[in-house]
Design a protein around this nucleic acid. Structure first.
Lengths: 195, 195
DNA sequence: CGCGCGATTGAGTAATTTCAAATCTAGTGG
DNA sequence: CCACTAGATTTGAAATTACTCAATCGCGCG
């Protein structure tokens, strides 16, 4: 089922942090000890609308969707959270308010969880981690802006192509309904564009 | 012309940083010394497409637009940078590559400039500043996501209303053509919606 | 007065949505 | 192996929304 054993998945987070920071082994161990590992199954939700958002999640394996459901019940997909991704309802997480977004498994998924208290403690106690999260936040901001631009400048058909080009596995892993919700078009429209 | 004297504008940056961080006066002085102050006039550009992006800018007064111009020459407005805002072509800034965006004055504007070297030095030498920029980056990321959602869920007419509600002065300060470029509709469409 | 810029209006066109129906597909139980 | 069902996908047709292009309007300023 899973391609990685439990120990090598813990290695995944370790390597992910090492790539960007220069922490001592001691610091790294202290950092990792603040995370807890959890497994979820397809269709389970890590974050539900109205509930408190206790964690930010590092995705070790699997696939999640971050969704806003509007009054009419339409689903709008803010992101696919893949392996190596950090995801949460950040607005709710940082303000300790109830979630407005939901985070739900599209596949069986393993994550590492970090509470806000631990996040803040890490940022204050391990300078390298503040820089680490700063870099993540900056790249997240930049890609959100680029997604905005692609909505402004690019036809849905090309956005679809670019999405498949950027994440070649995605076409196999999720339904077209999900892809449409990410691209910002109806599933019928996406279907017609596929030609 | 300007509502603030030079010295009180420097206070603006000082207070802006103090609001979020807990730096000593010494640290704060060291931080401020890395910034340089510059004034620009309406229609001047701080960042031009193809040119290196040497600074991130803190807007002390005035108003800027961050724009992407597509192949057809259409302008897409990523943000209005107002007083207290931090702005740049962050992608280009952090990667030291040529700008793909332009940053242009919609009014006479005073900014404080910070080079990437100084930004990185501040983040490493003054832990409070890494946390400061982390907080800015996180809120920037969150608002970019919410703008995405508003594009997905909300009709252009309501987005227009919400923009005016959020920034009441904006309707007076910029042309409707600029507002349309921010909302992601043509100026003709915006004109028709204004009823 | 007349120029120039921004805003508006009109008409035709293109893209997308909605709602409904038909089709396809994978998995289940007989 | 087949029939059956639930979910996903596709297709059709009408209605909506926004776009483009062109013409017109309104206004401030030299």
């Amino acid at each position: 089922m899973h391609a990685y054993s439990i120990s090598s998945m813990s290695e995944l987070l370790r390597h992910h942090i090492r790539k960007v920071t220069s922490l001592t082994e001691e610091e790294l161990a202290a950092v990792l000890s603040r995370f807890s590992r959890r497994s979820y199954r397809k269709h389970q939700s890590l974050i539900q609308v109205g509930q408190p958002v206790l964690h930010v999640y590092f995705v070790a394996s699997g696939l999640l969707k971050l969704v806003y459901a509007d009054e009419a019940g339409r689903q709008h997909l803010l992101s696919f959270a893949m392996e190596d991704w950090w995801e949460s309802d950040f607005q709710a997480y940082f303000t300790r308010r109830p979630a407005t977004l939901s985070l739900t498994c599209l596949e069986d998924t393993v994550v590492y969880c970090l509470t806000l208290d631990d996040y803040q403690a890490l940022c204050h106690e391990v300078p390298g981690m503040a820089l680490f999260f700063l870099q993540k936040a900056n790249t997240g901001y930049i890609s959100a802006q680029q997604r905005l631009l692609s909505l402004f400048t690019t036809q849905a058909a090309q956005r679809y192509q670019q999405l498949l080009d950027s994440y070649p596995t995605l076409g196999q892993r999720v339904s077209k309904t999900q892809l449409a919700a990410y691209l910002g078009v109806s599933r019928e429209t996406l279907s017609r564009l596929s030609k």
